[in-house]
């Protein structure tokens, strides 16, 4: 589980201070899946860095399983908009990278087996010997997802992972993501600016206000199943979509007033 408890954060430059987070609190239960949406530039990526322990909050507490996050820890998986695959490794070696960092008792064969299992799940098993540059953007992002899950992290953080993909590829990856969720047991936090993505993937959607970001609104999505895209077009989803759109509009409007 992930918990933010009254978190403040600011960046200092030589001339000024920029407050990005202001009294942000939210809670993602164990094996839960929450999405954070908000106006662009509101500090969403800062949230991911805080969870990963890459930066420390200026004030307030960030907790993972009830423990304060002080430094990076190995039970986290991360994926970004940029898949950042290493060009000098093939896909299989790229996926196995975290196992070279995180302590484990796996043999080489077991590592490969686990990587292949994931690659199979996302439909990349035939490409394990290819270089990243030989793959399409969507395929690279799939490989990046496999890499973020190979060490079986308790927490998965996705920072606009599908942002650079075209609409059809993105929808394919949503389905892949829910497949991955069924097979693994991780708590997931996704940062996105796509409302439909948030509704489709997450159990709860948290809307952040404009900068400095604080929780403005949150809503449980309460869907029955996650295995097809049709559920995005039910009256229930449409209603959610409209509510969230209104909230985003509100966040942007308030931000403009403040500036």
């Amino acid at each position: 589980m992930i918990e933010f408890d009254g978190v403040y954060h600011k960046f200092s430059t030589k001339t000024s201070e920029l407050q990005v987070l202001k009294n942000l609190s939210f809670y993602v239960p164990k094996s839960g899946f929450s999405a954070i949406i908000g106006p662009s530039g509101c500090g969403k990526s800062t949230v991911t860095k805080l969870v990963a322990g890459l930066i420390k909050p200026y004030n307030g507490r960030v907790l993972l399983n009830g423990e304060m996050v002080q430094t990076p820890r190995s039970n986290i998986g991360m994926a970004f908009q940029n898949p950042v695959l290493l060009e000098w490794r093939n896909i299989l070696q790229n996926v196995m990278l975290p196992l070279e960092i995180v302590k484990n008792n796996l043999t080489d064969l077991q590592k490969k087996e686990r990587a292949r299992e994931l690659l199979n799940l996302v439909g990349l098993i035939e490409y394990e010997n290819n270089r990243p540059s030989e793959l399409s953007g969507g395929m690279r992002q799939r490989a990046s997802l496999c890499r973020s899950l190979i060490h079986q992290p308790e927490v998965l953080i996705l920072d606009e992972p599908f942002g650079a993909l075209d609409a059809f590829t993105r929808e394919d990856l949503w389905l892949t993501m829910s497949r991955l969720r069924e097979t693994g047991s991780f708590t997931c936090l996704i940062i996105t600016h796509d409302i439909r993505e948030a509704i489709f993937l997450a159990d709860e959607v948290i809307v952040l206000s404009g900068r400095p970001a604080t929780n403005q609104f949150s809503i449980k999505t309460e869907k029955e199943n996650n295995d097809n895209l049709d559920q995005l077009y039910t009256p229930h989803s449409t209603k959610l979509l409209n509510i969230l759109r209104e909230q985003i509009k509100l966040a942007r409007k308030n931000e403009m007033v403040e500036r």
């Binding site: 890459l54 991360m78 970004f80 950042v84 990278l97 960092i101």
Partner: peptide, 23 residues
């Protein structure tokens, strides 16, 4: 070096040397 490259390993607790050597 793009910060994301560093972050994928740093988030796992890799040392500076490991990041240098692997990436």
């Amino acid at each position: 070096l793009e910060p994301e490259y560093r972050d994928i390993l740093r988030a796992l607790g890799a040392s500076k040397f490991t990041i240098f050597w692997k990436i």
